[in-house]
Design a protein around this nucleic acid. Structure first.
Length: 835
RNA sequence: GCCGGAGUGGCGAAAUGGCAUACGCAGCAGACUCAAAAUCUGCCGCCCGCAAGGGCGUGAGGGUUCGAGUCCCUCCUCCGGCACCA
């Protein structure tokens, strides 16, 4: 054994040993005690920084720990390999995406390996591999078969660089999630998945996911955005055209003083054609169409509108109110038309005041009666209804069901639920993706490719230098195809599938990656899924995680899988940030901010175990953390100290009888060490099991080393002392092994055992070892600690009370007072209440 | 505005309603050294005090309790999501 901690040498050696002994190979045919530990697979961008590393290290700790706990662990890794950066690189540098992706994967694989992160590489998937994407295409066909994939011309999100985007890919400020460019609306023919059909299921089944972070469930619920209300049919007074509206506040319907309709609403165009106000209204509409979606849907945008010249009839009271075309009503939500109640809706109020439209109070504020003429804002609270015909006097909230019933009976409305969620746009005008398996035929329309003809292969020989559009579309051969239905000439769909679709089923493929006949083995998948622990970044809360849930639900309904949710438990780790040297601000690591910490260099300088240890010790793993170059020094110091301790003491603790002697008659310091060992086992286990508190677990291990340090060991130590000491060292190494596996395996070997520790059972703590004869208790007077007392561990209340009341400081502080009460907490403290 | 999370030493952070600040970083003092680094030992919340000891202290203010960082109410600040969504 070397005196100095030779991390580089031992890390290389153990990495090779783990590979050679196939420790991470999972036997998926084993069915007892399985644990599917899944870390979100990365886009092969080329290099990973320490923030990425955190993700994989957490997964690796868990996988190793579960193995030690006797689980058959499936911990696979793969590559979300389709995507835009590779295609851009092809454009700029002339490297084929296939080649750059392959290189990047090789480098990242090397990084993972040198961090000591182990996977069952036999199960590696690559979404750009035809053997993989053939099944992505198959999934498309399954949705198509079920009427869940459709093509329509609609205003879609358009990013100059990334082409079409799903709603989930557009940030709240109207920019592209991927590249930050502004997103515009364009009318395009695109493929969509009918995720809205699953809105309610996706919402309801969030209840099946108690082991997901509340935050993520909340984000998904927000995104789905269910709102309950009523649909009420107004009619255009002049023409009789129906004009349905959706409202969550049918109780305010007697207060409607106008109807607001979106500029894009088809009814507007129909009505005003040839009408007296046509020019004025058309002017307004064309002006609105120029405004970006982000500005249109921003609450701060001034409300504008134009009177259409038409009126609508309120079916509840027969009143005719003006129909206004307004900028604040969105065509995409509800019915694109809103019943406007200025008295009780702030937006309607602002608009009404702007255009001199009457305000009519129909719900009274009981605290301060409302006067429509002097109101400065809408009253959105509750109260008794007024001026509401037969509903007068009822509490507004209570009246809603009756009002909806009234509308239903009259045939002009019903209860209704609206979701914010929109259908998922899945086509992209890009080359580096899985081709959509569709052939357009003049006679038969859009015809799906037959399953047995999959995959639709992506040609390699495309010209990336096309200025605009998809290089696939200008390929010489790819677009021409025979119609699978009639055999006539057709045109192959040249759009490719969104990357999100490739990544929303990969966890199924891992279970049976070699199968060429099916996407996954149904039996194995049903046994191994749902994933026991999924680990990844919170940035996927409504993208990947929602899409995956949706696809699994569809596969479930189609009978392909027996479970409804893919991920039983989810852990979202925080980002690692670093102060930018440019402006001193804290940012998540990115090349543009120049604050990237490269793990490659750290591994060379400190070793993988140090990198792992510090990454885990930096803070609670679910929280963002700030990388500190000094912090890593602390981690390496600990490992050096540990190494040195084993080195120094090894001569005293080898060649001894196995096990630990009975504690009776041992000197107190030795018993104390033995107790520290079991305290550590108990606490480290608790910290791992209860919410991934790795930072705290490592602190416990550090405490154990401090306890070992506090215990003297030398030539003169008894055999019993040596055995206890050895057991302390051994236990420390075992507890440390999931976190810092290389040094642990090495020291375990030095201590005379057979590594790897992955195969060694996790230790159990013994309650007897934790027991003490005497304990120190705190003595309080009126809740303030005034002294300490040593009592026997099993001291009864009376003894403790007596010990407390005889404490000199207690006497001092209770002098001249009457003791009212004495609270005794066995094993902890005594509180003397006096006044 | 609605929903969720957080606020504790100089810093990262610990604490099933029971001794606040474990563990680590930084800092200070000392040992080793020609010297430095590394390493080791000790100190390290604020205020008063030579000390013993005392007062204060977990964003603010209330409350429950023998006892609150922890539970309840009100508020402030920060972070995340949703938001002209009818």
């Amino acid at each position: 054994m070397q005196e100095k901690y030779p991390f580089a040498e031992i890390e290389a050696r153990w990495q090779k040993l783990w590979d050679d002994s196939a420790c991470f190979t999972a036997d998926t045919s084993r069915s007892d005690k399985k644990f599917y530990c899944l870390t979100m697979f990365p886009y092969p961008s080329g290099t990973m920084h320490v923030g990425h590393g955190r993700n994989y290290i957490i997964g690796d700790v868990l996988a190793r720990y579960k193995k030690m706990r006797g689980f058959e662990v499936l911990s696979p890794m793969g590559w979300d390999a389709f995507g835009l950066p590779a295609e851009n690189a092809a454009k700029d540098k002339g490297i084929h995406p296939k080649d750059s992706t392959r290189q990047n994967i090789a480098h990242m694989k090397r990084q993972l390996r040198q961090w000591g992160v182990g996977y069952d590489w036999n199960r590696e998937v690559d979404t750009s591999d035809p053997e993989y994407y053939r099944w992505t295409q198959w999934i498309f066909l399954q949705l198509h078969k079920r009427g869940l994939a459709y093509r329509k011309c609609a205003p879609v999100n358009w990013c100059e660089l990334c082409t079409t985007l799903a709603n989930e890919e557009v940030l709240a400020d109207g920019t592209c999630d991927r590249c930050g460019r502004p997103v515009a609306k364009r009318d395009l023919d695109q493929w969509f998945f009918k995720i809205t059909d699953y809105a309610q299921k996706l919402l309801d089944d969030l209840d099946l996911l108690p082991k997901w972070p509340e935050k993520v469930r909340q984000m998904q619920a927000n995104w789905i955005g269910r709102s309950e209300g009523a649909r009420v049919e107004f009619t255009v007074s002049e023409t009789g055209d129906p004009c349905p509206i959706f409202t969550t506040r049918p109780d305010t319907i007697y207060g409607v003083t106008f109807l607001a309709i979106a500029p894009e609403h088809p009814l507007v165009r129909k009505l005003i054609a040839g009408s007296p106000r046509e020019t004025e209204v058309m002017d307004f509409i064309s002006r609105q169409l120029m405004v970006s979606a982000a500005v249109r849907s921003d609450g701060a945008t001034r409300k504008e509108g134009v009177f259409s010249g038409f009126h609508v009839r309120n079916p509840f009271n027969g009143e005719n109110v003006p129909l206004w075309v307004t900028n604040y009503v969105l065509m995409e939500y509800g019915t694109g038309a809103v019943m406007a109640v200025p008295a009780h809706d702030q937006r309607d109020f602002e608009f009404a005041r702007e255009y001199g439209i009457p305000v009519k109070v129909v719900i009274q504020n009981e605290e301060r009666p409302l006067d429509a003429t002097v109101m400065t804002e809408a009253y959105v609270g509750d109260g008794p209804m007024v001026a509401s015909g037969p509903f007068d006097g009822q509490r507004n909230r209570d009246a809603i069901p009756g009002m909806i019933r009234h509308a239903a009976q009259g045939g002009f409305g019903d209860s209704s639920v609206t979701y914010r969620l929109r259908d998922w746009l899945i086509s992209r005008q890009r080359y580096w993706g899985a081709p959509i398996p569709i052939v357009h035929c003049g006679k038969c329309g859009a015809v799906p490719v037959r399953e047995e003809d999959l995959p639709v292969l992506l040609p390699d020989d495309v010209d990336f230098r096309v200025e605009r559009g998809n290089p696939l579309a200008s390929h010489a051969a790819f677009p021409s195809a025979k119609c699978p239905s009639c055999g006539g000439p057709g045109k192959r769909e040249t759009d490719t599938l969104a990357q999100w679709l490739c990544s929303c089923w990969y966890f199924l493929r891992y279970v049976s990656p070699g199968r060429a006949d099916v996407p996954f083995d149904r039996e194995d998948v049903n046994r191994w899924l749902p994933v026991d622990q999924y680990i990844g970044g919170v940035e996927h809360a409504v993208l990947h995680l929602l899409y995956s849930r949706f696809i699994v639900k569809v596969l479930h309904d189609a009978g392909h899988v027996g479970f409804r949710e893919p991920f039983g438990a989810l852990f979202t780790q925080g980002m690692i940030c670093k102060r930018s040297s440019k402006d001193g601000q804290l940012y998540k690591m990115s090349k543009s901010k120049g604050n990237v910490v490269s793990p490659d260099e750290l591994v060379v300088e400190y070793g993988a175990d140090t990198l792992r240890l510090y990454t885990l010790f930096i803070g609670p793993p679910e929280k963002d953390a700030e990388w500190s170059d000094q912090g890593i020094e602390g981690a390496v110091r600990f490992l050096r100290r540990l190494w040195r301790k084993v080195y120094d003491k090894r001569q005293f603790i080898t060649g001894l009888e196995a096990g630990v002697p009975p504690m009776d008659g041992m000197e107190p310091a030795v018993r104390e060490l033995h107790r520290a060992v079991h305290t550590a086992i108990q606490q480290v286990t608790f910290d791992i099991e209860e919410g991934f508190r790795f930072n705290s677990a490592i602190a416990r291990i550090m405490e154990l080393l401090n306890a070992i340090d506090a215990c003297e060991l030398g030539e003169s130590s008894s055999a019993g002392t040596r055995r206890v000491y050895r057991n302390a060292m051994e236990t420390l190494v075992v507890l440390l092994s999931p976190f810092a596996p290389h040094i642990s395996d090495e020291l375990w070997t030095e201590l005379g055992h057979k590594a790897p520790l992955m195969a060694v059972p996790w230790p159990e703590f013994s309650p007897e070892a934790l027991a003490r004869d005497e304990i120190e208790i705190a003595v309080q007077v009126n809740g303030k600690v005034r002294g300490r007392a040593v009592v026997s561990a099993d001291a009864d209340r009376e003894t403790m009370e007596k010990a407390a009341l005889s404490d000199a400081n207690v006497l001092k502080f209770t002098e001249g007072m009457t003791v009212r009460k004495v609270i005794v907490v066995p094993g902890k403290l005594v509180n003397v209440v006096a006044s």
